[in-house]
Design a protein around this nucleic acid. Structure first.
Lengths: 258, 258
DNA sequence: TCAAAAGTGTTTCCAATACACCCATGA
DNA sequence: TCATGGGTGTATTGGAAACACTTTTGA
């Protein structure tokens, strides 16, 4: 999406009827969170999303829009479902919020904007994985707020966004062996326990610490570095980093988990 | 898609810019095949596909179009990717075939049709699984022929259909534990070896006969029936059928293969 | 010296693998 | 009786799981 024009002037450059939503997963405060936006003047939260420029692929468009929302370039991205239920316009499903947002638009653009948002949209849902520590959450033009929210404490959500999030989690679980969780969600150096917490959050079950450690080390994709001295009165964990070459091959063949 | 109107008259009822393609897998002559169509007067083959009616979901539309192509209702269906490369119109990528097809259209519809097919399409790809023995392959309005073709002998393919087929195979392999292969691809009674051949075709590797047998039986979703007397001079294999209740649960949790 | 967390060892169990063996079938 | 393919038995291996033990850290 064009970074300089206002949204009002971009509508002509968009493919009608098509939109994208993105479930951005981040490892934040020792748990999995997703990035949500709060619509202006409402208590309703929504996934970051956008529309398809005529001269871009959906992947490019989502990459751009995530850069806007996070300040991070080239976030790991994977589409997982295209939702085409017939009732999927803003007016159909979320009329009250739509009225509030509409009331904030400048008079001269109301017609064009209303018409755009009254369309039926077919929406392709993406999931993204990002190291939350480098993200700078930034609201879009129809939101007041953008922040990380724990998967265990999801608020009021717009449209069918709760369902989309659930689908994203299922997708993540089913493809867990083919997705570079470690590299995408963590900083370049991390502890073994951080990696374990990610797997536990996605699989929804606790794992044995010792067995996890040995399993990961045997896969041979982790390089051990100096210890992380936290100041806590217990043994300091080593920091690890990922050997990209080995990891790529593992992910390609399926890492063998769960 | 409406079954009575000709395609020429349906264009007004379709959502622009959106199409669907479907990779239909069938177990045919002891191997995995897919259903392909040959464009009229050409040597180019294509996946069954269609467009999105304004009042239907993509899933409904694909179900309908597969009924047209196969005579089978409620085929098992799963979408796996939405392709949005910018160059994806028929005119961009397959100009010569497009000219041939266009020349067959009635003069009075040429304008409307050309305009429709010159659009950029974003296409959602589905894969379908069906018991090939009950399929009656039927060409559509722009094809001369419709038949099962072995995955090992793919012909000239239109557009990016070869890439779509490869993606479908990858999807099938990666989600193999969550897809009801046995129930969707086989008739209600089948031999253990038929089931094994399907797994082998998808995984791309040979499996041990004895171990496969025991593994399947231990999962406890197969009921054993009478033997299948083929007339061959060797031990007759048992026929098996699927216990739907057990199988559903297995598929939901992931069957644990590969 | 203590508690807490990290890392390693050990034991048990079961699934995966590789074959060997026996059984049924019709020529 | 023979060849062929189906079904079962068995020995070996290796990973999964459970849990004990040792080490490190700073209070």
């Amino acid at each position: 999406m064009n970074k300089h024009k206002s949204f009002y002037d971009q509508i002509e450059d968009l493919v009608p009827s098509i939109s994208m939503d993105c479930v951005v997963f981040g490892y934040h405060h020792k748990g999995l969170h997703i990035l949500l936006l709060r619509y202006k003047k409402t208590n309703t939260w929504a996934l970051p999303g956008g529309f398809l420029p005529k001269n871009a692929t959906m992947e490019n468009a989502v990459t751009d829009l995530l850069f806007q929302r996070t300040g991070v370039e080239n976030i790991f991205l994977q589409q997982f479902h295209t939702f085409s239920s017939v009732k999927r316009g803003w007016t159909d499903r979320d009329g009250r919020n739509f009225e509030i947002i509409k009331s904030l638009w400048p008079q001269e653009h109301k017609g064009k904007l209303s018409k755009w948002f009254e369309q039926r949209f077919v929406s392709t849902a993406f999931m993204a994985l990002v190291d939350a520590s480098i993200v700078n959450p930034t609201p879009d033009e129809i939101s007041d707020e953008c922040k990380w929210i724990s998967l265990n404490e999801l608020p009021n959500l717009a449209l069918d966004h709760r369902q989309i999030i659930e689908e994203a989690q299922r997708h993540l679980r089913q493809k867990i062996n083919y997705i570079p969780l470690g590299r995408s969600l963590l900083p370049s150096k991390f502890t073994m326990y951080d990696l374990q917490l990610i797997y536990e959050a996605i699989l929804g079950e606790e794992l044995d610490r010792g067995n996890f450690q040995r399993k990961m080390m045997k896969l041979n994709f982790l390089d051990r570095h100096e210890k992380l001295m936290t100041g806590a009165s217990n043994k300091a964990p080593y920091l690890y980093s990922i050997n990209d070459k080995v990891y790529d091959q593992l992910i390609k063949d399926g890492i063998g988990f769960g």
